[in-house]
Nucleic acid binder design. Structure first.
Length: 501
RNA sequence: GCGUCGUUAGCUCAAUGGUAGAGCAGCGGACUCUUAAUCCGUUGGUUGUGGGUUCAAGUCCCUCACGACGCACCA
């Protein structure tokens, strides 16, 4: 029987061993949970920068206070312990020496990997060249009671990583770094837009009719109003209502919900940046979009060349541009009529051996053909422009070609990242396109959106000529942080609940 | 929703149908500049769930749960 209790190695026993140490700390008058604050000199990264120039063997001559989570301890006999301390910013080595700490050294025996500690001590550089804190005083700020995953492999089981993300974050540093980069990217985009006079707004997530995109919404219910509600599938219609009202450069970065499949590139809730600007058109938005992507890349530390998914991407502006019909012609061998004529499009799909759902609409057929023939070629950032109107119910027709619209989609690494167009502002045209959707819906197409007639009402007051864009931020971040799955750029991706026994 | 693969100690992983193992972590010991510290000793298991086949199942078959990947839906 030792002072921590002679215990085995079941999970319960590992926890008991740590609880025993907690009790010892308490009986020595050092209850970890009694602390309310700890004054740090600075985050660890700043401690590192401040002592960069310390020579091997040199001591700084002054004391600093740092706090963080203990990473592996290396015990060298009864009188010396090395450990690593990690905070949000970085890690640094700690050096506990009995001679130096006096009675305080007794506490070192009660430390475990995972404990949150505050230390005061002198920075110095060891003879192996590592910047280290020679600890004079240490205090446990919270005892970690659960055993941590292995120090070398970390936590790898995906289910455990997503369900217990806090563990993933504390033992797998790159995961934390990715999440911090995500935050930096979004902050940089916000700054970029704010500097250019765009106004950030927040529009409702709960709506009576979720419109502005083709997607199945989540359904919910208001007890107070006793009415069914839907979670938004886009912010588009409300943002354009803002433009009607006079907010000329408006954007929202917000969560959008779509009740559909989940895979590497789809999560039921995702973050979209939608932006609308009065008195500009799709070309103005294209320029802005390129600027936003480059800003995001810069924030992520990505330069002109970036490897993703085994492919070399070039972020050097200007990004490539290709017209929708030209792309289908060169990669799919399709003529304009093969696309725009419904029966010819169906014949083309058949020729290309593309499988289609029985009730697939003309738009769906064309979309599918594009996906199969063109999309695999769109590796470098590429703007695909001038889509057919039949794919674009909210976009303005081209003046030189009424069957096409002023629109672009940005593809990177074969994924659609952004979708933009000159907004349709003709209320009569909009009403007719909504009516067509209503007919599709009545015919049994559950995906066809329910028309939002108040939006037409708003257009009747006059929407200025407006350019707008939606950017899937999660996907952009996934590419810029070199992650293979949306799940790896979301702190808490959707997981099925574990069944309770 | 369909298909393929996976699930073994706290973590990372082994194990021809024939006595469930290792490394890390833990515990005990040695060690005053280590960094995946090292060395000696040692504890720890309802092999995801429920059934079946078999003298015998971690291993073969079926069910269910969860996960990864692919397909479908979608961005």
């Amino acid at each position: 029987m030792n002072k921590s209790g002679d215990v085995g190695a079941t999970e319960a026993e590992l926890i008991r061993a740590r609880r025993n140490k907690l009790e010892e700390l308490r009986s020595a008058g050092n209850d970890p949970y009694a602390h309310t604050k700890f004054e740090r000199t600075y985050p660890i990264v700043e401690a590192r920068l401040a002592h960069e120039k310390l020579a091997v063997g040199e001591h700084s001559g002054h004391s600093v206070a740092l706090a963080g989570r203990l990473q592996p301890l290396r015990r060298m006999g009864k009188k010396i312990v090395f450990a690593d301390l990690a905070d949000q910013s970085a890690r640094i080595q700690l050096y506990f020496r009995a001679e130096q700490m006096g009675d305080g050294f007794a506490l070192v025996d009660l430390l475990d990997r995972g404990d949150l500690v505050g230390v005061r001590g002198e920075p110095f550089r060891t003879k192996t060249g590592e910047l280290t804190i020679a600890v004079k005083e240490a205090v446990v700020l919270a005892k970690s009671l659960r055993p941590l995953p292995e120090k070398w492999h970390g936590l790898v089981d995906p289910a455990a990583r997503y369900r217990h993300r806090y563990v993933d974050l504390m033992v797998n540093r790159p995961v934390l770094d990715t999440m911090l980069t995500r935050s930096r990217i979004i902050a940089a985009l916000r700054r970029y837009l704010d500097e250019r006079g765009y106004v950030e707004v927040e529009t409702p997530t709960l709506l009576t009719i979720a419109g502005g995109a083709n997607a199945r919404p989540f359904a919910t219910h208001s007890h107070a109003l006793d009415i069914p509600l839907q979670l938004r599938i886009a912010t588009e219609l409300n943002l354009k209502r803002c433009v009607v009202g006079g907010i000329e450069k408006v954007y929202e970065i917000g969560r959008t919900f779509r009740n559909e499949g989940i895979d590497r590139t789809h999560n039921p809730e995702f973050t979209m940046l939608e932006l609308y600007e009065a008195y500009t058109d799709v070309e103005g938005i294209l320029q802005l979009c390129e600027g936003m992507v480059l800003t995001a890349a810069h924030a992520a530390g990505v330069g002109a060349k970036h490897e993703y998914d085994g492919k070399d991407l070039s972020f050097a502006p200007p990004f490539a541009r290709v017209r929708y019909l030209d792309a289908l012609a060169s990669w799919g061998g399709l003529s304009r009529d093969d696309v725009l004529d419904e029966s010819k499009a169906r014949a083309a799909a058949k020729r290309l051996k593309i499988e289609l759902e029985p009730g697939a609409s003309h738009g769906h057929v064309v979309d599918k053909i594009f996906e199969e023939t063109v999309q695999p070629h769109l590796v470098n950032p590429t703007f695909v422009t001038d889509q057919p109107v039949l794919l674009s119910p909210l976009a303005k027709r081209r003046r030189d070609d009424a069957q096409l619209v002023e629109r672009f989609e940005l593809f990177i690494s074969n994924m659609e990242i952004a979708n933009a167009f000159s907004e349709l502002n003709d209320p009569d045209d909009q009403r007719e396109r909504f009516a067509a959707q209503a007919r599709e819906r009545a015919a049994g197409d559950a995906e066809a959106p329910e028309p939002d007639w108040d939006y037409v009402h708003a257009l009747e007051y006059g929407l200025p000529p407006t350019g707008g864009i939606g950017v899937g931020l999660d996907r952009l971040i996934m590419i810029l942080t070199s992650q293979g799955s949306l799940r790896d750029v979301l702190l808490f991706p959707m997981q099925k609940p574990e069944e309770r026994a």
